[in-house]
């Protein structure tokens, strides 16, 4: 008797706990194809383009619906979108994310919110739009598929575009509190327009040619690391630098550069600065020699400084000013390439 009661309870439990309690129909699921983030008056304006797939007799097609939500944070913006659509937002199939200038200073919120979404696959590309994000951008035909494929084709075949996934962006922001994104222009059609480097208080734009230079010098390489130590008593500066093998293969060019700088002592920060400029100049001259370049482009080199915590405030301030942008202008209108000054940005 007890066995039968036990079996009955078990069967009831099996039927009650499994099954369709939390079942969601496909058309009740809001599959997000694209995300647009814009900030206005300290509020986030979140644009989500939903994909509605339809199966017809001979083919299957899809429609897109754009919904915009605003709020003090991402959660409230998503809630507003949910109220409009009555569909639960599903981030598993995001094709791209687009940001604009107003997102400067809000990357922490963007990165931390979307990293928490378990369904999100963070391999989708993130792009920067040269103008304010509006519904007209999402109205461009097939943008969910055109934009990612345009990025891929340009990156692989023409080497004029960065390809930055959300994961790359998050990693870069968490490590360096800055992001480097490809820029799109969307007037009547979709066009790639270089790249942009954004930190909390700085924005630096790069043209397509500059991006090519960045890809030449930055893509697939280990960064050059300089460890700077200052002797607080004598004010002497010791620099330990290491560069690793640089393999560049865009557009079927093979270049290998391997240089290593051992430890060097400098009497003070000024002489170090001059020596660094000289070192980078000779480094870039080597690249130019090997490239035998005859196109207009700018070189951009990122140097990562690892600060010694015992360094003085002056040195640290100077290093922070120095850290990311160090560009040399080169002119290739004549056969002789000439180096003109260097700009510290």
């Amino acid at each position: 008797m007890k066995k039968w009661i036990f079996c009955l309870i078990t069967l009831l439990f099996v039927f009650l706990t499994t099954g369709c309690i939390s079942y969601t129909e496909l058309n009740e699921l809001g599959i997000v194809g694209a995300i647009g983030i814009h900030y206005e008056d300290k509020q986030v304006v979140l644009s989500l383009q939903f994909i509605d797939a339809k199966k017809e007799e001979n083919n299957s097609s899809y429609q897109t619906t754009l919904l915009v939500g605003t709020g003090n944070d991402m959660e409230s913006a998503i809630d507003m979108i949910y109220q409009q659509s009555s569909r639960s937002v599903y981030f598993s199939h995001v094709a791209f994310m687009v940001l604009d200038e107003s997102c400067q200073g809000h990357f922490q919120e963007i990165v931390s919110y979307f990293l928490k979404q378990e369904e999100l696959r963070s391999s989708f590309p993130v792009v920067f739009l040269n103008q304010e994000i509006t519904s007209e951008f999402f109205d461009l035909s097939d943008i969910t598929f055109r934009l990612p494929s345009l990025l891929t084709v340009n990156h692989e075949e023409h080497a004029t575009t960065l390809q930055v996934s959300f994961e790359d962006m998050a990693r870069q922001y968490l490590e360096e509190e800055s992001v480097l994104l490809p820029v799109f222009q969307a007037d009547s059609s979709l066009m790639i327009d270089g790249a942009i480097w954004i930190s909390n208080d700085t924005m630096i734009r790069f043209s397509k040619e500059e991006v090519m230079g960045i890809l030449f010098l930055q893509d697939d390489i280990e960064q050059m690391e300089l460890t700077i130590r200052e002797d607080t008593e004598t004010k002497k500066i010791r620099v330990l630098a290491e560069t690793t093998i640089l393999n560049i293969t865009p557009m079927h060019l093979d270049i290998e550069i391997h240089s290593q700088i051992r430890s060097v002592d400098f009497p003070d920060a000024t002489s170090f600065q001059k020596a660094y400029e000289d070192t980078v100049q000779s480094y870039i001259a080597k690249v130019l020699d090997q490239l035998n370049a005859d196109h207009d482009f700018l070189h951009f080199k990122t140097v990562l400084f690892r600060e010694d915590p015992k360094s003085s405030d002056d040195l640290i301030q100077w290093l922070n000013h120095f850290t990311y942008s160090f560009s040399f202008h080169t002119s290739f209108t004549s056969e002789n390439s000439s180096m003109m000054g260097g700009d510290l940005k």
Binding site: S112, L115, E167, A170, R171, L174, E175
Partner: peptide, 10 residues
Amino acid sequence: ILGIPLVQQY
């Protein structure tokens, strides 16, 4: 695969 900044988020 993720790098230390991302690994610490999960």
